[in-house]
Design a protein around this nucleic acid. Structure first.
Length: 397
RNA sequence: GGUGGGAUACUCAAGCGGCCAACGAGGGCAGACUGUAAAUCUGCUGACAAUUGUCUACACAGGUUCGAAUCCUGUUCCCACCA
């Protein structure tokens, strides 16, 4: 009997010139078509919009975070609601991340650039200690200490109750030495096995487990990791860790990693959500992406736009003075509540006036934009014109 | 009418002889953001030339001084108290 009786993944249409393909991912909370994008509700909130609004804007699947929710409000409170789906009023598929990314983000003093190799390496690790057992975190909320192990992460994720759960891993930054990267990868593999064992002990068929491929920027390490994760009975696989210092490097490394992944399993690219990055990922066979970028930049005043129509820029900043009297919608071709009813000038005004509504309207637009992008990718594969459609979205190529 | 106090860049507000083109805050103008310690962070903000540069500036007009936003005199407004 399968570990995942209520889940399935089937690839069903293939691009002739790349590894791009369509897929159907079935879960107890319905099916989604891939390629697709997962929107981040890290702390059980899509930050500024309701799940209802996200659904109306086209979102198919969302994600929350184990670490944040175990600190606040605590897994038992979520369980008391009947799980994340009920608590968030979301009836579609859901995923929880394991907290592995926080081993990186909290371990490096909040230097989020670190993963991409920007800025200086930070050696001080004030927020956590990591060893074979797991990671000991100092809460960013009140400074209290919290242990996260593969077993605890699985237990918390079982209580949170999403469809997809993820093994605990260590997300390694760009500036790690090869030696550290290799040792960390091996430990993440051992954690993956422990996560799997813990998952199996309590498996009720309602959740499916993702393994995570590590190995940094090194081809041989990524190959080892891909093959190891593929050899274990995970439902799906995710690509984690650093992907290099530049976009070009990232695109190359993603392609390299994809060569050795399990061919029949859904593949998720963790934390990546740029427009060109998604086209590149899909081309190499990625099925799903998640990223805070669309919802975060919305709160910072930015709207996603087609880079081909904006000289390569993937977003515009509605704070900019040039939108003060712009009576157009952000993008009339992106069908959503924001674009149906409001002008750029109005959103510019809301931003200037420090009105929270600006972030909400921009978030709705950005969700709708990512949804439109995913649909464009899917229909282009279905209709055998993937590379043509790509040219309409990826600047100067 | 008398006596005090005050007038500083778009705004508020420090400075009280040289280190002042002038702290700080707001505003303005940009930038960043990729498994969210992020409705956050960063830069610039008198003009012009754009590496040390030059000019115009701290109510207005004079003065003292090598040198003033800072001291003195007068003028104009504003505020408080007393008549």
């Amino acid at each position: 009997m399968s570990l995942y009786p209520q889940f399935s993944f089937k690839k069903h249409s293939f691009d002739k010139h790349s590894k791009a393909h369509l897929g159907e991912l079935k879960t107890p909370h319905g099916s989604i078509q891939t390629p697709n994008f997962i929107f981040c509700a890290t702390k059980a909130a899509l930050k500024s919009v309701t799940t209802q609004q996200a659904k109306e804007a086209g979102a198919d699947i969302i994600l929350s975070n184990t670490y944040h929710l175990m600190l606040q409000p605590g897994a038992d409170i979520v369980a008391a609601h009947g799980g994340l789906h009920k608590m968030l009023n979301w009836d579609g598929p859901m995923l929880t991340d394991s907290g592995g990314f926080q081993i990186f983000s909290l371990g490096h003093g909040g230097v989020a650039n670190e993963i991409k190799g920007r800025g200086r390496p930070v050696t001080e690790k004030k927020m956590l200690k990591i060893n074979e057992t797991g990671a000991l975190f100092r809460s960013y909320i009140d400074g209290s200490m919290h242990l996260l192990t593969p077993e605890i992460s699985m237990e918390v994720q079982r209580k949170l109750g999403p469809d997809f759960v993820v093994v605990l891993d260590e997300c390694t930054p760009y500036h790690s030495s090869r030696e550290y990267m290799a040792a960390s990868m091996e430990r993440s593999h051992r954690w993956a096995i422990r996560s799997l064992r813990a998952f199996e002990r309590h498996n009720d068929g309602k959740q499916a487990l993702y393994g995570i491929v590590q190995g940094g920027t090194y081809r041989d390490l990524r190959k080892i990791s891909s093959e190891f994760i593929a050899s274990q009975p995970f439902f799906a696989q995710a690509i984690g860790g650093t992907l290099g210092g530049t976009k070009e490097e990232m695109h190359e490394i993603v392609g390299m990693i994809c060569e050795n992944l399990h061919k029949d399993r859904p593949t998720h690219l963790l934390g990546i959500g740029g427009i060109s990055d998604i086209w590149n990922g899909v081309e190499h066979g990625i099925d799903t992406f998640d990223c805070v970028h669309p919802t975060r930049i919305a709160r910072h005043g930015c709207a996603l736009v087609n880079p081909v129509e904006h000289e390569g820029k993937e977003h515009i900043n509605l704070f900019n003075a040039c939108y003060r009297d712009d009576m157009n919608p952000i993008d009339a071709t992106v069908d959503c509540y924001t674009n149906r009813h409001f002008t750029r000038a109005y959103i510019h005004h809301l931003l200037k006036a420090d009105e929270l509504l600006a972030g909400q309207l921009l978030t709705i637009h950005n969700i709708a934009f990512m949804t439109k992008l995913a649909r464009a990718i899917r229909s282009s594969i279905a209709e055998g014109r993937f590379s043509e459609e790509r040219k309409r979205w990826v600047y100067d190529r």
